[in-house]
Simulated scan of single mutants.
Amino acid sequence: MQDRCQALPEDPAGSRADFASGEARAAYEPSPDEIRRASDLLKVVGDLTRMRILCALLRGELSVSDLQQSLDMSQSAVSHQLRSLRDANLVKYRREWKTVYYSLADDHVLDLITLVVEHIRHD
């Protein structure tokens, strides 16, 4: 089974800052702590299984069982990867009786996935 992330259309108003000038770029230069945290986050996203989970969640909220079936993985393997994504604040969850539902944590996660997919499609 092959999962594919679908890039979302660009915001017509333009959501990215204009980085034409060096001054604009310098304003966004991260601190050493932000660089470390960004690196840690990209390590989490860089795992193939976790990226597949994030891409599946682009469709909306899914239960662990839904993810298990969609990804053709065991429940324990899915839960293990979801724990890493939760720890990185990339997904959120809610419990309904015995069923746990997951979704992307916020629009920043959606933007991150979209930007990565747009970048690889650009080549």
Rank of each mutant, 00 (worst) to 15 (best):
R37F: 06
S65Y: 06
Y28K: 07
A13D: 13
H108M: 10
R83Q: 13
H80Q: 13
S65F: 05
R95M: 09
F19G: 11
E96Y: 05
L42E: 10
Y93C: 03
L54Q: 02
R86C: 06
E10K: 14
D66Y: 03
G46V: 06
R86P: 00
L48M: 04
E96K: 13
T99H: 06
H80P: 00
P9S: 13
C55K: 05
V45D: 03
A77D: 09
A105K: 09
E34S: 14
V91F: 02
L104T: 07
T99V: 15
A56Q: 14
Y101I: 02
S76E: 10
S39P: 00
A13R: 15
D11T: 11
R95K: 15
L82Q: 01
S63F: 01
S74F: 02
S74E: 09
A26S: 15
R37P: 00
K98I: 04
D33V: 09
S39V: 08
K98F: 04
A38T: 12
S21F: 08
R94E: 11
A17V: 06
W97Q: 15
S79M: 03
S74Q: 07
H108Q: 14
V45F: 04
G14H: 07
S65G: 05
K92Q: 14
S21I: 09
S79C: 04
M51F: 14
P30W: 07
Y101K: 06
L110M: 08
V109P: 01
L8V: 06
S70H: 05
K98D: 08
R50W: 02
A24D: 11
R16L: 12
E34M: 11
F19W: 11
R16Q: 10
